[in-house]
């Protein structure tokens, strides 16, 4: 007991010193780790942006959830029979180690058994997706109407023909060709209710730079405000106008037409008595 008492003050001093040293070291460690964590956090936030051409595999969760769930193991890449998927490498500008593909390079072949989704151990690729037709990897957009051959009045149709969901995801819409005035244009038109974003259309576009591209939904689609209602839809659903039948006012100069038909062919003479005046600033009209 007595020896313990004697050594106590010195031991206290020693342990106090050790405690101070320990606390100082801990503070340094905590500070350093905080700096590093902050740096990594900021870098991660910065680096989680993704180029529009990089498409996630089918069934991928929305990007923020995907980045939390994907452990970057590459099992989906291994089970992709067409080597479509690849793991991003540092410098690809896609979160390092996560799977993606580029439609223009190698599109998704839309396997019916979806092996990539089955391979994912974490649920970053959602197994709720069992019908590949319901995959929404992105949305094809005919982004350049100035170079698209069909918009020039030619019959290319390649994107339409390669589409795995032909006539549903891409249809050819018949439109009058105002340039020749006697031909039709068959315009490839994408429908978001059927397009899976597989990228086949972008891959096979014959132009040096594809006129049709698969884009992430946020870039490809607008969104109507929740309170918007389409009058004609509501009318059909209700079996009649919700605000009563509307007064149909006569259209001056088009009295012989059906209501709403405002087309005017060259040389058309309106049946109304008043002779037509020249339009524009020289019309001579005075209040």
């Amino acid at each position: 007991m007595s020896t313990q008492k004697n050594t106590r003050p010195s031991a206290d001093g020693k342990s106090g010193q050790a405690r101070r040293r320990f606390l100082k070291e801990m503070a340094g460690a905590a500070g350093g780790a905080c700096m590093l964590a902050l740096g990594v956090g900021l870098y991660g936030t910065e680096a989680s942006a993704r180029p529009a051409s990089a498409i996630r595999p089918p069934g991928a969760l929305p990007e923020p959830e995907f980045l939390a769930a994907c452990v970057r193991c590459g099992l989906c890449v291994r089970d992709c029979p067409f080597d479509t998927l690849k793991l991003s490498e540092l410098g690809d500008n896609v979160a390092t180690g996560t799977p993606y593909f580029e439609g223009r390079k190698v599109p998704c072949e839309m396997c019916e058994d979806i092996p990539c989704v089955k391979a994912c151990p974490t649920g970053a690729l959602d197994r709720e997706l069992t019908d590949i037709g319901k995959a929404r990897m992105g949305l094809a957009v005919l982004i350049d109407q100035e170079t698209c051959l069909n918009f020039l009045g030619l019959r290319c149709d390649v994107c339409y023909r390669v589409c795995p969901v032909i006539d549903k995801a891409i249809t050819l819409e018949l439109v009058h060709n105002p340039r020749s005035d006697r031909h039709a244009m068959l315009l490839p038109t994408v429908h978001s209710d059927a397009c899976t974003g597989c990228g086949k259309c972008e891959h096979s576009c014959v132009l040096p730079e594809a006129a049709i591209k698969v884009l992430p939904y946020a870039l490809a689609q607008g969104k109507a405000a929740e309170h918007y209602r389409k009058g004609w839809v509501e009318k059909e659903a209700a079996g009649g106008s919700l605000i009563g039948e509307q007064q149909q006012l006569p259209m001056r100069g088009l009295e012989d037409r059906k209501y709403g038909d405002t087309r005017v062919a060259p040389g058309y003479v309106p049946p109304s008595a008043e002779p037509s005046r020249p339009a524009g600033i020289d019309s001579g009209w005075k209040p």
Binding site: A29, A30, G32, A33, C34, L36, A37, V40, G41, Y43, G44, T45, A47, S48, P64, E65, L67, A68, C70, V71, R72, A95, T96, G97
Partner: peptide, 22 residues
């Protein structure tokens, strides 16, 4: 050990696998 904990905190805050960035 600080990093071990802080990376879990950073994962929770950023909603991504924080340490996997580096």
């Amino acid at each position: 050990y600080w990093l071990l904990g802080l990376m879990l905190a950073a994962s929770a805050l950023t909603g991504s696998l924080a340490w996997e960035w580096v």
